[in-house]
Design a protein around this nucleic acid. Sequence first.
DNA 1: TCTGGGGTCCTAGGACCC
DNA 2: TCTGGGGTCCTAGGACCC
Length: 428
Amino acid sequence: MYALIDCNNFYVSCERVFQPWLRLKPGVVLSNNDGCAIARSQEAKDLGIKMGAPFFELEPMVKAGKIWVRSSNYTLYQDMMRRVTHIIQEMWPEMEIYSIDESFCDVSMYDRFSLELMAIELRERILQFTGIPVCIGIGETKTLAKAANRTAKKHFKDTGVYFIDTEERRRFALQNLAVEDVWGIGPAKAAALIRAGYPTAWAFASIKNHEAIRDMFTITGLRTWYELNGTKAIQMEYEQPDKKGICTGRSFGQKTDDYVQIEDALCAYVLNSAPKVREQGLLVGQLQVFLHTSRFEVNNRIKSAAYTMDINPPTSLSQELIHYAVECLKRIYAPGYPYQKVGVFMTRFSKESAGQLLLHEDNANRAKKEKLSHLMDKINKTWGKDTMRLAAMSYTQPWKAKHEFLSQKFTTRIEDVLVVKPHSFFMR
DNA sequence: TCTGGGGTCCTAGGACCC
DNA sequence: TCTGGGGTCCTAGGACCC
Protein backbone atom coordinates (compact mmCIF):
# COMPACT_ATOMS: atom_id res chain seq x y z
CA MET A 1 0.00 0.00 0.00
CA TYR A 2 1.13 3.50 -0.83
CA ALA A 3 -0.02 6.82 0.55
CA LEU A 4 0.23 10.14 -1.27
CA ILE A 5 0.24 13.24 0.91
CA ASP A 6 -0.44 16.34 -1.17
CA CYS A 7 -0.64 19.87 0.21
CA ASN A 8 -3.77 21.74 -0.87
CA ASN A 9 -3.09 24.80 -3.03
CA PHE A 10 0.35 24.71 -1.47
CA TYR A 11 1.87 28.09 -2.39
CA VAL A 12 -1.36 29.89 -1.58
CA SER A 13 -1.63 28.02 1.73
CA CYS A 14 1.94 29.04 2.68
CA GLU A 15 1.10 32.70 2.02
CA ARG A 16 -2.06 32.43 4.11
CA VAL A 17 -0.32 30.92 7.14
CA PHE A 18 1.55 34.16 7.81
CA GLN A 19 -0.93 36.61 6.30
CA PRO A 20 -4.24 35.28 7.59
CA TRP A 21 -6.25 38.12 6.07
CA LEU A 22 -5.53 36.53 2.69
CA ARG A 23 -8.06 33.87 3.69
CA LEU A 24 -10.84 36.39 3.23
CA LYS A 25 -10.42 36.65 -0.53
CA PRO A 26 -9.55 34.47 -3.51
CA GLY A 27 -5.84 34.66 -4.33
CA VAL A 28 -3.17 33.66 -6.79
CA VAL A 29 0.59 33.09 -6.61
CA LEU A 30 2.42 34.22 -9.74
CA SER A 31 5.29 32.61 -11.64
CA ASN A 32 8.77 34.02 -11.67
CA ASN A 33 8.76 37.46 -13.27
CA ASP A 34 5.12 37.82 -12.16
CA GLY A 35 4.17 36.43 -15.55
CA CYS A 36 1.25 34.11 -14.93
CA ALA A 37 -0.73 32.20 -12.28
CA ILE A 38 0.95 29.04 -10.97
CA ALA A 39 -1.09 28.47 -7.81
CA ARG A 40 -4.68 29.39 -7.01
CA SER A 41 -6.79 29.29 -3.91
CA GLN A 42 -9.92 27.16 -4.10
CA GLU A 43 -12.05 30.31 -4.42
CA ALA A 44 -9.83 31.53 -7.27
CA LYS A 45 -10.34 28.21 -9.06
CA ASP A 46 -14.09 28.58 -8.50
CA LEU A 47 -13.90 32.03 -10.11
CA GLY A 48 -12.60 30.29 -13.22
CA ILE A 49 -9.02 31.54 -13.02
CA LYS A 50 -6.95 29.04 -14.99
CA MET A 51 -3.52 27.67 -14.29
CA GLY A 52 -1.08 29.73 -16.37
CA ALA A 53 -3.46 32.66 -16.79
CA PRO A 54 -1.28 35.69 -17.66
CA PHE A 55 -1.09 38.43 -15.08
CA PHE A 56 -2.41 41.17 -17.35
CA GLU A 57 -5.69 39.27 -17.51
CA LEU A 58 -5.91 39.15 -13.71
CA GLU A 59 -4.83 42.72 -13.12
CA PRO A 60 -8.30 44.31 -13.38
CA MET A 61 -9.55 41.95 -10.67
CA VAL A 62 -6.60 42.82 -8.45
CA LYS A 63 -7.22 46.53 -8.92
CA ALA A 64 -10.90 46.09 -8.13
CA GLY A 65 -9.93 44.37 -4.88
CA LYS A 66 -11.61 41.13 -5.91
CA ILE A 67 -8.49 38.97 -5.65
CA TRP A 68 -4.99 39.25 -4.22
CA VAL A 69 -1.73 38.18 -5.87
CA ARG A 70 1.73 37.33 -4.55
CA SER A 71 5.05 36.81 -6.33
CA SER A 72 6.46 33.33 -5.84
CA ASN A 73 8.54 33.02 -2.68
CA TYR A 74 10.31 29.69 -3.02
CA THR A 75 12.43 30.22 0.07
CA LEU A 76 9.25 30.26 2.14
CA TYR A 77 7.64 27.31 0.33
CA GLN A 78 10.76 25.15 0.59
CA ASP A 79 11.05 25.77 4.29
CA MET A 80 7.37 25.05 4.91
CA MET A 81 7.67 21.77 3.02
CA ARG A 82 10.72 20.85 5.10
CA ARG A 83 8.50 21.16 8.17
CA VAL A 84 5.67 19.14 6.65
CA THR A 85 8.16 16.45 5.63
CA HIS A 86 9.45 16.07 9.18
CA ILE A 87 5.96 15.51 10.51
CA ILE A 88 5.15 12.92 7.85
CA GLN A 89 8.38 11.06 8.50
CA GLU A 90 7.63 10.76 12.18
CA MET A 91 4.56 8.73 11.35
CA TRP A 92 5.54 7.04 8.08
CA PRO A 93 9.34 6.89 7.74
CA GLU A 94 9.40 5.04 4.39
CA MET A 95 9.01 8.25 2.43
CA GLU A 96 9.82 9.55 -1.04
CA ILE A 97 9.76 13.30 -1.59
CA TYR A 98 8.10 13.55 -4.97
CA SER A 99 7.78 17.30 -5.46
CA ILE A 100 7.73 20.51 -3.46
CA ASP A 101 4.21 19.73 -2.24
CA GLU A 102 3.82 15.95 -2.47
CA SER A 103 5.29 12.86 -0.82
CA PHE A 104 4.70 9.16 -1.31
CA CYS A 105 4.93 6.77 1.65
CA ASP A 106 5.13 3.02 1.66
CA VAL A 107 2.55 2.03 4.27
CA SER A 108 2.39 -1.71 3.57
CA MET A 109 3.43 -2.54 7.12
CA TYR A 110 0.28 -1.15 8.76
CA ASP A 111 -3.05 -2.95 8.88
CA ARG A 112 -5.98 -1.52 7.01
CA PHE A 113 -7.99 -0.38 9.97
CA SER A 114 -5.25 1.61 11.63
CA LEU A 115 -4.13 3.03 8.26
CA GLU A 116 -7.19 5.16 7.73
CA LEU A 117 -7.06 6.47 11.31
CA MET A 118 -3.35 7.19 11.00
CA ALA A 119 -4.00 9.19 7.84
CA ILE A 120 -6.66 11.26 9.55
CA GLU A 121 -4.37 11.92 12.48
CA LEU A 122 -1.41 12.80 10.29
CA ARG A 123 -3.51 15.31 8.44
CA GLU A 124 -4.62 16.97 11.67
CA ARG A 125 -1.08 17.06 12.97
CA ILE A 126 0.28 18.75 9.84
CA LEU A 127 -2.48 21.33 9.97
CA GLN A 128 -1.91 22.03 13.65
CA PHE A 129 1.88 22.27 13.49
CA THR A 130 2.31 24.12 10.18
CA GLY A 131 -1.08 25.56 9.20
CA ILE A 132 -0.93 23.73 5.88
CA PRO A 133 -4.00 21.68 4.87
CA VAL A 134 -3.26 18.39 3.09
CA CYS A 135 -5.19 15.54 1.53
CA ILE A 136 -4.12 11.91 1.73
CA GLY A 137 -4.88 9.16 -0.78
CA ILE A 138 -4.04 5.51 -0.22
CA GLY A 139 -3.97 2.68 -2.75
CA GLU A 140 -2.15 -0.42 -3.91
CA THR A 141 -0.02 1.45 -6.45
CA LYS A 142 1.38 4.94 -6.69
CA THR A 143 -1.03 5.79 -9.50
CA LEU A 144 -4.00 4.57 -7.42
CA ALA A 145 -2.74 6.58 -4.43
CA LYS A 146 -2.69 9.62 -6.72
CA ALA A 147 -6.21 8.88 -7.89
CA ALA A 148 -7.35 8.39 -4.29
CA ASN A 149 -5.83 11.75 -3.42
CA ARG A 150 -7.83 13.48 -6.17
CA THR A 151 -10.94 11.74 -4.89
CA ALA A 152 -10.28 12.95 -1.34
CA LYS A 153 -9.81 16.52 -2.59
CA LYS A 154 -13.00 16.46 -4.60
CA HIS A 155 -15.48 14.28 -2.73
CA PHE A 156 -14.24 13.89 0.86
CA LYS A 157 -13.12 17.35 1.85
CA ASP A 158 -14.20 16.94 5.48
CA THR A 159 -11.82 14.09 6.29
CA GLY A 160 -9.38 14.79 3.46
CA VAL A 161 -8.61 11.08 3.23
CA TYR A 162 -9.62 8.43 0.68
CA PHE A 163 -8.52 4.83 0.86
CA ILE A 164 -8.92 2.53 -2.13
CA ASP A 165 -9.10 -0.75 -0.24
CA THR A 166 -12.03 -2.36 -2.03
CA GLU A 167 -13.05 -2.87 -5.64
CA GLU A 168 -16.07 -0.70 -5.00
CA ARG A 169 -13.94 2.23 -3.86
CA ARG A 170 -11.58 1.79 -6.80
CA ARG A 171 -14.54 1.94 -9.13
CA PHE A 172 -15.89 5.07 -7.46
CA ALA A 173 -12.52 6.83 -7.63
CA LEU A 174 -11.78 5.94 -11.24
CA GLN A 175 -15.29 6.53 -12.57
CA ASN A 176 -15.19 10.05 -11.15
CA LEU A 177 -11.72 10.81 -12.48
CA ALA A 178 -11.35 12.38 -15.92
CA VAL A 179 -8.75 10.57 -17.98
CA GLU A 180 -6.64 13.73 -18.30
CA ASP A 181 -6.37 13.82 -14.50
CA VAL A 182 -4.68 10.43 -14.31
CA TRP A 183 -1.03 10.63 -13.26
CA GLY A 184 0.99 9.98 -16.41
CA ILE A 185 -1.71 10.97 -18.90
CA GLY A 186 -0.92 14.38 -20.35
CA PRO A 187 -2.81 16.45 -22.90
CA ALA A 188 -1.67 14.41 -25.91
CA LYS A 189 -2.64 10.99 -24.55
CA ALA A 190 -5.85 12.36 -23.02
CA ALA A 191 -6.97 13.78 -26.36
CA ALA A 192 -6.30 10.46 -28.08
CA LEU A 193 -8.15 8.51 -25.40
CA ILE A 194 -11.17 10.79 -25.45
CA ARG A 195 -11.29 10.54 -29.23
CA ALA A 196 -11.21 6.75 -28.93
CA GLY A 197 -14.13 6.82 -26.49
CA TYR A 198 -12.36 6.49 -23.11
CA PRO A 199 -13.10 9.71 -21.23
CA THR A 200 -12.56 8.47 -17.66
CA ALA A 201 -9.84 6.67 -15.74
CA TRP A 202 -12.26 3.77 -15.34
CA ALA A 203 -12.87 3.49 -19.09
CA PHE A 204 -9.12 3.54 -19.76
CA ALA A 205 -8.43 0.95 -17.07
CA SER A 206 -11.12 -1.30 -18.53
CA ILE A 207 -9.49 -1.57 -21.97
CA LYS A 208 -8.73 -5.24 -22.54
CA ASN A 209 -6.13 -5.12 -25.31
CA HIS A 210 -2.64 -4.57 -23.81
CA GLU A 211 -0.91 -4.55 -27.16
CA ALA A 212 -3.07 -1.73 -28.46
CA ILE A 213 -2.25 0.37 -25.41
CA ARG A 214 1.44 -0.28 -25.85
CA ASP A 215 1.35 0.56 -29.53
CA MET A 216 -0.52 3.80 -28.94
CA PHE A 217 1.09 5.06 -25.77
CA THR A 218 4.38 3.18 -25.45
CA ILE A 219 5.58 1.48 -22.31
CA THR A 220 4.77 4.46 -20.08
CA GLY A 221 1.09 4.35 -21.04
CA LEU A 222 0.97 0.60 -20.40
CA ARG A 223 2.51 1.08 -16.96
CA THR A 224 -0.19 3.57 -16.06
CA TRP A 225 -2.83 1.07 -17.21
CA TYR A 226 -1.32 -1.68 -15.02
CA GLU A 227 -1.12 0.63 -12.04
CA LEU A 228 -4.76 1.67 -12.33
CA ASN A 229 -5.64 -2.02 -12.28
CA GLY A 230 -3.69 -2.62 -9.10
CA THR A 231 -0.45 -4.07 -10.52
CA LYS A 232 2.68 -2.27 -9.38
CA ALA A 233 4.74 -0.92 -12.27
CA ILE A 234 6.30 2.19 -10.72
CA GLN A 235 8.67 1.75 -7.78
CA MET A 236 9.38 3.98 -4.81
CA GLU A 237 12.53 6.08 -5.08
CA TYR A 238 13.93 6.81 -1.68
CA GLU A 239 17.33 8.08 -2.74
CA GLN A 240 17.41 11.05 -5.00
CA PRO A 241 19.57 10.03 -7.95
CA ASP A 242 22.36 12.35 -9.04
CA LYS A 243 21.18 14.96 -11.49
CA LYS A 244 21.91 14.34 -15.15
CA GLY A 245 21.75 17.99 -16.01
CA ILE A 246 21.56 21.27 -14.14
CA CYS A 247 19.94 24.28 -15.72
CA THR A 248 19.33 27.92 -14.86
CA GLY A 249 17.33 30.07 -17.25
CA ARG A 250 15.10 33.03 -16.49
CA SER A 251 13.02 35.60 -18.28
CA PHE A 252 14.30 39.15 -18.20
CA GLY A 253 12.28 41.75 -16.33
CA GLN A 254 12.09 43.57 -19.65
CA LYS A 255 12.83 42.34 -23.14
CA THR A 256 16.23 43.42 -24.40
CA ASP A 257 18.78 42.95 -27.14
CA ASP A 258 21.57 44.61 -25.13
CA TYR A 259 24.48 42.19 -25.31
CA VAL A 260 26.11 43.49 -22.13
CA GLN A 261 22.98 42.86 -20.10
CA ILE A 262 22.42 39.43 -21.61
CA GLU A 263 26.00 38.38 -20.88
CA ASP A 264 25.68 39.70 -17.35
CA ALA A 265 22.51 37.69 -16.75
CA LEU A 266 24.13 34.60 -18.22
CA CYS A 267 27.11 34.92 -15.86
CA ALA A 268 24.75 35.18 -12.91
CA TYR A 269 22.98 32.00 -14.02
CA VAL A 270 26.27 30.15 -14.39
CA LEU A 271 27.11 31.26 -10.85
CA ASN A 272 23.74 29.91 -9.74
CA SER A 273 24.23 26.48 -11.32
CA ALA A 274 27.94 25.96 -10.66
CA PRO A 275 27.70 25.57 -6.84
CA LYS A 276 25.00 22.93 -7.35
CA VAL A 277 27.41 21.00 -9.56
CA ARG A 278 30.23 21.28 -7.01
CA GLU A 279 27.95 20.30 -4.16
CA GLN A 280 27.37 16.96 -5.85
CA GLY A 281 31.09 16.52 -6.49
CA LEU A 282 30.62 16.59 -10.26
CA LEU A 283 32.48 18.02 -13.25
CA VAL A 284 30.75 19.47 -16.30
CA GLY A 285 31.60 17.79 -19.62
CA GLN A 286 29.22 19.71 -21.84
CA LEU A 287 27.63 23.11 -21.66
CA GLN A 288 24.76 24.58 -23.60
CA VAL A 289 23.61 28.19 -23.76
CA PHE A 290 20.20 29.13 -25.12
CA LEU A 291 18.78 32.52 -25.95
CA HIS A 292 15.31 33.21 -27.22
CA THR A 293 12.50 35.71 -27.64
CA SER A 294 8.96 35.20 -26.43
CA ARG A 295 7.00 32.65 -28.42
CA PHE A 296 4.12 35.15 -28.47
CA GLU A 297 6.20 37.56 -30.54
CA VAL A 298 5.14 38.24 -34.15
CA ASN A 299 6.81 35.99 -36.69
CA ASN A 300 9.76 37.99 -37.94
CA ARG A 301 10.74 38.92 -34.40
CA ILE A 302 10.85 35.36 -33.08
CA LYS A 303 14.36 34.06 -32.57
CA SER A 304 15.57 31.01 -30.73
CA ALA A 305 19.13 29.76 -30.69
CA ALA A 306 21.30 27.40 -28.70
CA TYR A 307 24.95 26.43 -28.84
CA THR A 308 26.45 23.34 -27.25
CA MET A 309 30.12 22.99 -26.41
CA ASP A 310 32.12 20.03 -25.11
CA ILE A 311 34.37 20.91 -22.21
CA ASN A 312 37.72 19.27 -22.11
CA PRO A 313 39.00 18.74 -19.52
CA PRO A 314 35.72 18.70 -17.56
CA THR A 315 35.46 21.37 -14.88
CA SER A 316 33.33 22.70 -12.07
CA LEU A 317 35.14 26.00 -11.67
CA SER A 318 32.92 29.06 -11.92
CA GLN A 319 35.50 31.11 -13.78
CA GLU A 320 36.04 28.45 -16.44
CA LEU A 321 32.34 27.74 -16.84
CA ILE A 322 31.69 31.45 -17.31
CA HIS A 323 34.38 31.59 -19.94
CA TYR A 324 32.81 28.74 -21.93
CA ALA A 325 29.29 30.08 -21.49
CA VAL A 326 30.30 33.48 -22.87
CA GLU A 327 31.98 31.74 -25.83
CA CYS A 328 28.67 29.98 -26.57
CA LEU A 329 26.66 33.17 -26.21
CA LYS A 330 28.90 35.04 -28.66
CA ARG A 331 28.16 32.41 -31.27
CA ILE A 332 24.39 32.72 -31.07
CA TYR A 333 23.80 36.36 -30.24
CA ALA A 334 22.41 38.50 -33.04
CA PRO A 335 21.35 42.08 -32.35
CA GLY A 336 17.90 43.43 -33.07
CA TYR A 337 15.60 40.89 -31.44
CA PRO A 338 13.50 41.47 -28.31
CA TYR A 339 15.10 38.69 -26.29
CA GLN A 340 13.12 37.37 -23.38
CA LYS A 341 15.26 34.70 -21.84
CA VAL A 342 18.80 33.39 -21.63
CA GLY A 343 19.97 30.28 -19.84
CA VAL A 344 22.68 27.71 -19.33
CA PHE A 345 22.42 23.94 -19.20
CA MET A 346 25.28 21.86 -17.80
CA THR A 347 25.48 18.15 -18.51
CA ARG A 348 27.73 15.13 -19.28
CA PHE A 349 28.79 15.00 -15.68
CA SER A 350 31.72 12.97 -14.40
CA LYS A 351 32.81 12.42 -10.82
CA GLU A 352 35.42 14.75 -9.42
CA SER A 353 38.62 12.84 -8.69
CA ALA A 354 42.24 13.57 -7.91
CA GLY A 355 43.37 11.73 -11.04
CA GLN A 356 41.79 14.25 -13.36
CA LEU A 357 43.54 17.09 -11.63
CA LEU A 358 46.97 15.52 -11.96
CA LEU A 359 46.56 15.14 -15.69
CA HIS A 360 46.07 18.84 -16.09
CA GLU A 361 49.17 20.88 -16.84
CA ASP A 362 49.00 23.81 -14.46
CA ASN A 363 47.45 21.92 -11.63
CA ALA A 364 48.86 24.13 -8.86
CA ASN A 365 47.04 27.11 -10.28
CA ARG A 366 43.99 24.98 -10.76
CA ALA A 367 44.01 23.67 -7.22
CA LYS A 368 43.99 27.26 -6.03
CA LYS A 369 40.95 28.08 -8.14
CA GLU A 370 39.21 24.96 -6.85
CA LYS A 371 39.82 26.04 -3.31
CA LEU A 372 38.52 29.50 -4.08
CA SER A 373 35.30 28.16 -5.63
CA HIS A 374 34.61 25.89 -2.68
CA LEU A 375 35.41 28.67 -0.22
CA MET A 376 32.99 30.98 -2.01
CA ASP A 377 30.30 28.32 -1.81
CA LYS A 378 30.88 27.97 1.89
CA ILE A 379 30.79 31.71 2.58
CA ASN A 380 27.67 32.18 0.49
CA LYS A 381 25.95 29.30 2.20
CA THR A 382 26.63 30.77 5.63
CA TRP A 383 26.20 34.46 4.91
CA GLY A 384 23.68 34.40 2.11
CA LYS A 385 23.70 34.32 -1.68
CA ASP A 386 26.13 36.67 -3.45
CA THR A 387 27.95 37.70 -0.27
CA MET A 388 31.09 36.88 -2.21
CA ARG A 389 30.94 37.21 -5.97
CA LEU A 390 33.05 37.30 -9.07
CA ALA A 391 33.82 40.70 -10.57
CA ALA A 392 32.24 39.45 -13.80
CA MET A 393 28.87 40.03 -12.17
CA SER A 394 27.46 43.53 -12.14
CA TYR A 395 25.76 45.05 -9.13
CA THR A 396 22.86 46.75 -10.85
CA GLN A 397 21.38 43.70 -12.65
CA PRO A 398 18.76 45.66 -14.61
CA TRP A 399 17.67 42.43 -16.31
CA LYS A 400 16.38 40.97 -13.08
CA ALA A 401 12.95 39.43 -13.07
CA LYS A 402 10.01 41.22 -11.52
CA HIS A 403 8.84 40.25 -8.03
CA GLU A 404 6.49 43.08 -7.36
CA PHE A 405 4.25 41.31 -4.87
CA LEU A 406 6.75 39.42 -2.75
CA SER A 407 5.96 38.61 0.85
CA GLN A 408 8.55 38.28 3.58
CA LYS A 409 10.71 35.23 4.25
CA PHE A 410 8.81 34.59 7.45
CA THR A 411 10.66 31.47 8.50
CA THR A 412 14.21 31.86 7.19
CA ARG A 413 15.22 35.50 7.62
CA ILE A 414 15.51 36.88 11.11
CA GLU A 415 14.36 40.40 10.17
CA ASP A 416 11.22 38.92 8.63
CA VAL A 417 10.08 36.85 11.57
CA LEU A 418 6.71 38.10 12.75
CA VAL A 419 6.71 40.03 16.01
CA VAL A 420 3.84 39.39 18.37
CA LYS A 421 2.91 42.42 20.46
CA PRO A 422 1.05 41.83 23.69
CA HIS A 423 -2.19 43.77 23.83
CA SER A 424 -1.92 46.92 25.94
CA PHE A 425 -4.34 45.42 28.41
CA PHE A 426 -1.68 42.93 29.48
CA MET A 427 1.03 45.56 29.55
CA ARG A 428 -0.54 47.42 32.40
C1' DT B 1 2.56 46.26 -23.05
C1' DC B 2 2.23 41.99 -20.17
C1' DT B 3 2.35 34.70 -20.96
C1' DG B 4 7.54 30.36 -15.56
C1' DG B 5 11.27 27.17 -14.45
C1' DG B 6 13.51 22.78 -13.99
C1' DG B 7 13.61 18.39 -14.71
C1' DT B 8 12.98 12.85 -16.52
C1' DC B 9 11.89 9.22 -19.65
C1' DC B 10 10.96 7.13 -24.10
C1' DT B 11 11.28 6.39 -29.11
C1' DA B 12 12.66 6.80 -33.87
C1' DG B 13 16.14 7.09 -36.79
C1' DG B 14 20.89 7.88 -38.19
C1' DA B 15 25.69 6.48 -37.83
C1' DC B 16 28.51 3.06 -37.14
C1' DC B 17 30.43 -1.75 -36.29
C1' DC B 18 31.52 -6.57 -38.11
C1' DT C 1 19.00 -4.93 -62.71
C1' DC C 2 20.40 -7.04 -58.62
C1' DT C 3 22.96 -4.86 -53.03
C1' DG C 4 22.66 -8.89 -45.80
C1' DG C 5 21.85 -9.36 -41.12
C1' DG C 6 22.29 -8.16 -36.59
C1' DG C 7 23.68 -5.27 -33.31
C1' DT C 8 25.11 -0.80 -30.37
C1' DC C 9 25.35 3.96 -29.42
C1' DC C 10 23.96 8.62 -29.84
C1' DT C 11 20.85 12.46 -30.55
C1' DA C 12 16.75 15.16 -31.33
C1' DG C 13 12.38 15.75 -30.18
C1' DG C 14 8.08 14.70 -27.95
C1' DA C 15 5.49 13.80 -23.83
C1' DC C 16 5.13 14.10 -19.28
C1' DC C 17 5.62 15.75 -14.27
C1' DC C 18 5.15 19.62 -10.64
